[in-house]
Design a protein around this nucleic acid. Structure first.
Length: 388
DNA sequence: GCTCCACCGGAAGGAGGGGAAT
DNA sequence: ATTCCCCTCCTTCCGGTGGAGC
């Protein structure tokens, strides 16, 4: 037996204490504290890379706030949480907020405007201080800049229309450049207070992992080396605590599978490989058909030569399409697909000039070729070309 | 220094699909 | 139900370009 409770390593687990975020917790708590006196707290905007503890800190402080409310017998504070990426559209963000104040809204069919009106009416009935958390707020803007800004603008101005209730917003984003996309008035309203969550360094990650390991694993099962390696690997990846926890969890699973009694450094390194393989595998598998065919073209060309240019890829791609009886996309489009594969880290692309012989992209495979082969040979279409 | 290759990548616009408004 | 709107994916068109070879 390796694990005591593996759910402790899940991303949504909220531990009793959050090491290395004491300062942020205290600051957020002091910002929100006025709510307990029925006053409106400042809006807060929280920035930080993925896995820097933004969401967990907010949830932690809100849980504390609820406990304090119970103790003080305060019942006029209400909390709403919505993840904008999961919700997807302004309509669903609003309807999730409505849900938390017991306003029922149909899945669809209402104008966004109408949902907004019901939200306001619901708030007035509750006579409360409403703290609304908008997690991954960047997703709302990224998907539809104008609609996103519109709904945020109306939300941030909601206190103007409310007489009996007040709303305070906590915005959370991974995207440090979000201020370029947010309209000025929305940004200045949301960021009355700003918290920036810096990435964790390896020492901090070790502390976090040690705490979690105590809960997740049976005593003495995880070696100190294993923890150090998890922390070092995750620190390299912009201090992502989620990644560190994933590594530890998978390392534990590997140890369990092998029937080993300890989680060692080797298990972590294997976990790293497994996670990397898995992510890449999924990423390639989920590519649209023509991107997969373009990747297949590069893969086949790379067996013969390492001087591959756009023209070579395109003609190989055309061959493959005719073999599969499909009509090929334009070269312009394929060139764009090649750039997308580059930005995903699957291909390596560099624009080079060959003087008299024109200007083109030099292309190579940037990732583990075995994964590429594994996915493509299991692919419905690509396998036809790979294993004729 | 000029030419000119082979493509780059921006712009505009069309198909089509899904969701919102009426 | 129908119209409207917007987004995504894609095409076509086209001006732009770094540098080998003359």
């Amino acid at each position: 037996m390796i694990f005591r409770d593996r759910s402790v390593l899940r991303h949504d687990f909220i531990p009793d204490k959050l090491p290395c975020r004491e300062k942020e917790i205290e600051e957020l708590a002091s910002i929100l504290a006025p709510a307990l006196r029925g006053e409106l707290p400042s809006n807060v905007f929280i920035y930080g890379k993925p896995g820097t503890g933004k969401t967990v800190v907010v949830r932690y402080v809100l849980t504390e706030l609820m406990d304090a409310m119970k103790e003080l017998k305060v019942n006029y504070v209400r909390l709403g949480y919505t993840n904008c990426r999961r919700a997807g559209t302004p309509y669903r963000v609003l309807s999730e907020l409505c849900d938390t104040i017991d306003v029922k809204v149909p899945f669809t069919g209402l104008a966004t405007d109408e949902v907004f009106t019901r939200f306001k009416k619901g708030l007035e009935r509750k006579r409360c201080v409403f703290i609304a958390v908008l997690d991954e707020i960047d997703a709302l803007i990224r998907k539809n800049r104008d609609a996103g800004n519109e709904v945020l603008y109306r939300l941030t101005r909601i206190n103007v229309d409310l007489k009996k209730s007040k709303v305070c917003f906590i915005g959370i984003t991974n995207d440090v450049t979000l201020n370029e996309y947010l309209d000025g008035p929305v940004l200045s309203c949301l960021s009355e207070r700003e918290l920036v969550f810096p990435p964790y360094d390896a020492t901090q990650l070790s502390i976090i992992l040690r705490e979690r390991a105590k809960l997740a694993f049976r005593e003495g099962v995880v070696s100190e080396d294993a923890i150090k390696v998890c922390a070092a690997l995750a620190a390299r990846e912009h201090g992502d605590a989620r990644k560190a926890l994933d590594l530890l969890r998978v390392a534990g699973e590997i140890a369990e599978r092998k029937g080993d009694s300890m989680v060692s450094e080797e298990h972590v390194l294997e976990a790293q490989k497994e996670l990397e393989y898995g992510h890449l595998f999924e990423a390639i598998k989920k590519l649209p058909l023509h991107s997969r065919l373009v990747l297949l073209s590069v893969y086949l060309l790379e067996k013969r030569t390492h001087k591959i240019f756009t023209g070579d890829v395109y003609s190989k791609y055309e061959d493959i399409c005719s073999m599969l009886d499909m009509s090929p996309l334009s070269q312009r489009r394929v060139s764009e697909l090649i750039n997308e594969l580059d930005s995903m880290g699957i291909l390596n692309v560099r624009v080079v000039s060959m003087g008299r012989y024109g200007r083109s992209k030099k292309i190579s495979i940037a990732c583990n070729k075995k994964v590429v082969r594994d996915v493509l040979s299991g692919d419905e279409w690509c396998s036809v070309v790979l294993n004729p």
